[in-house]
Design a protein around this nucleic acid. Structure first.
Length: 570
RNA sequence: GCCCUUGUAGCUUAAUGGAUAAAGCAGGACUCUUCUAAGGUCUUGAUGUAGGUUCGAUUCCUACCGGGGGCACCA
């Protein structure tokens, strides 16, 4: 709808006129509004309010007959638009019919690689991993609906010194049986023990580095252990991803680029981008205002950044992406600045948008960073289990009509939805302090509220006995559109495609989540104020049923983008 | 010290440089013979400090104060 208004205005003020349309919170300021006159007034040196009045009159005269109900100028120089009932009806019919409702074409013909989740092999996933996984999955969905070809990439932490330490620890204290019994738990315990003992015996650190160097040099024993640890870990991760309903197109981790390490370093040396320093190889980034980036250790072993450089080359060549998004915590901001600076020195990926989508950390209840080593991190599996258990308690008191099996399903869907929404509705960059009460709040601005709204709408449709195919837009009759809440809900539905587009542009899940909440509020107000099944005006009842169906569809689609499921009954 | 990030109501958070700063929770008062009360209605209450840019600043810039994270052989 904003596009239609922009087209009308450009016809009047010229194709190049810089016109933005916003949707005011209050209907007092119009259904739509523009600050065009405010800006033009400044350029032309004319009082903006006078200009706004003149423009409003011109728009009223030139707009298609009956499109606007009224166009008004308002201080200090806004032009506010109210749509006519006919226009609202026409647009509502269009949306109700639109099979691609919500879709955009911003990414048409473009590929975007979204890297997210990135767990470390042999370590339990904790609540910190939930942010990257959930945010990444949602952004990938949003960009896909915006027309992009999306490559979902899980860049596993399956290489590096940590594996040297793990192998060293296993050789000293490990045994096959306990690893097979509970792989990650056992491996992680070995890793933690290694760090504990390292405090007393600093020589252990060197031992770990040596084992990694051996691994990197192709030692058979170490290679075998590494492959085994990786397989066991992946099996466990996939179980959690299934629970979270998250999937990936590419599972290539750091180890994949292991063979390219030497060539990568050589290329950087040959091009005089990298140099030797204290026995190691570094890239000096003074020109970019960054500290030097280490790409090879003095023992010749590679580093995280080296693998990321090789990975970038691989991605650019194989996918020719328009963008690569790295959904990684804010704590790694420097590493990405360095990676992008090195890419620039190499002249790679010109015109490709490389973006670190940073997010705030999940802090412990103490307000400090979580640590696997220190054992302060809440494990992801435990959090999910607890959430489902608490949701189960609530379901038992709320809805007694459900069968035990349905109750379990509701508890799972509600719990996972609450965890997701709690994260996605907020600004990405803010740190989150882990808090059970907040995370599992099932009332107010929460996923269960949205899911509940959806279930109520679907319940009406079920009870109406009307089949989906009977909900024909042709039955809409403008003269019946009397109720404020009804019109407000229709206009709210108009925003959905614009919101999806903006969420994609800003990489902002909260833009979408906040919209969905407002949509649900509008739907609930409509529900409370407007009888539908009891309405004996047949035409009006048909319109309202179609509105219920369309609102439900928008909620389901929007929540689906965020990875939140809906149920017919809750 | 430098870099990233953050500071809005008692608490947790919204707000492409716009109009009267928007919600949830908690507190108080109502509301189930209309379709699911996980709902709806009413109500108390806020932009860290000091400057600057602007017709207009929660938003941009500078300084300061406070929180979190990072800064060469970890990822």
């Amino acid at each position: 709808m904003t596009q239609e208004i922009i087209i009308i205005l450009k016809k009047i003020f010229g194709a190049d006129a810089p016109i933005d349309i916003s949707v005011p919170d209050e209907e007092l300021f119009g259904h739509y509004s523009t600050n065009f006159a405010l800006r033009q007034g400044k350029i032309k040196g004319v009082p903006p309010l006078e200009l706004a009045k003149e423009y409003a009159a011109r728009i009223s005269a030139a707009a298609p007959a009956g499109f606007f109900q009224k166009v008004e100028a308002a201080a200090p120089g806004f032009i506010n638009f109210w749509l006519s009932n006919e226009t609202i009806q026409r647009e509502f019919v269009r949306i109700a019919r639109d099979k691609k409702y919500g879709a955009g074409d911003a990414g048409k013909g473009k590929t975007v690689i979204v890297e997210y989740s990135d767990p470390n092999i042999a370590k339990k996933m904790h609540v910190g991993h939930m942010r990257t996984t959930i945010i990444g999955a949602a952004l990938a969905n949003i960009l896909e609906l915006s027309g992009y070809r999306v490559v979902r990439w899980n860049y596993l932490g399956d290489w590096g010194t940590q594996f040297g330490k793990l192998i060293a620890a296993y050789k000293m204290w490990g045994d096959k049986k306990s690893v097979e019994k509970d792989p990650i738990e056992t491996l992680q315990r070995l890793y933690v023990r290694f760090h504990e003992e390292m405090k007393a015996d600093p020589a252990l650190e060197k031992r770990g580095q040596e084992e990694f160097k051996k691994l990197e040099d192709g030692d058979h024993e170490n290679r075998r252990l590494w492959e085994w640890f990786k397989k066991e870990s992946l099996d466990e991760f996939k179980r959690i991803y299934k629970l979270l309903d998250v999937d990936f197109d590419v599972w290539i981790g750091e180890a994949f680029f292991e063979r390219e390490m030497k060539d990568t370093v050589k290329e950087l040396m040959d091009k005089h981008i990298a140099e030797r320093s204290e026995g190691a190889v570094v890239v000096k980034l003074d020109a970019a205002g960054l500290p030097p980036a280490l790409i090879q250790k003095s023992d010749g072993a590679s580093l995280y950044l080296t693998r990321d450089i090789a990975n970038l080359r691989y991605r650019l060549k194989k996918y020719k992406p328009a963008k690569i998004l790295y959904i990684v915590g804010n704590e790694q901001a420097l590493a990405f600045e360095q990676l992008f600076a090195v890419a620039k020195l190499l002249g790679w990926g010109e015109g490709v948008e490389l973006k670190h989508i940073k997010y705030g950390l999940v802090l412990g209840e103490s307000g400090k960073k979580l640590s696997t080593r220190e054992g302060t991190a809440q494990l992801l599996e435990g959090v999910i289990a607890e959430a489902i258990s608490r949701a189960g308690d609530v379901v038992a008191t709320k809805n007694t009509d459900l069968s035990p099996k349905e109750k379990d399903e509701v508890a799972t869907v509600v719990a996972l939805g609450a965890l997701r929404y709690n994260d996605l509705k907020e600004n990405r960059t803010t740190d989150i302090v882990f808090n059970w009460e907040k995370m599992l709040d099932f009332s107010g601005d929460s996923a269960p509220y949205l899911q509940y709204t959806y279930a109520r709408l679907k319940s009406i449709l079920r009870k109406s006995g009307v089949r989906k195919s009977d909900l024909r837009p042709a039955s809409v009759d403008v003269t019946t559109l009397a109720h404020m809440t009804e019109l407000a809900l229709m206009r709210k539905l108009f925003e959905f495609p614009d919101i999806v587009a903006r969420a994609g542009e800003l990489y902002s899940t909260s833009t979408l989540a906040v919209y969905l909440y407002k949509l649900a509020v509008a739907a609930n107000k409509f529900y409370e104020t407007t009888p539908i099944l009891k309405d004996d005006n047949v035409a009006r009842r048909a319109v309202r049923l179609l509105l219920v169906a369309t609102a439900a569809r928008a909620l389901q689609k929007g929540l689906g983008l965020l990875g939140i499921k809906t149920l017919e009954k809750i």
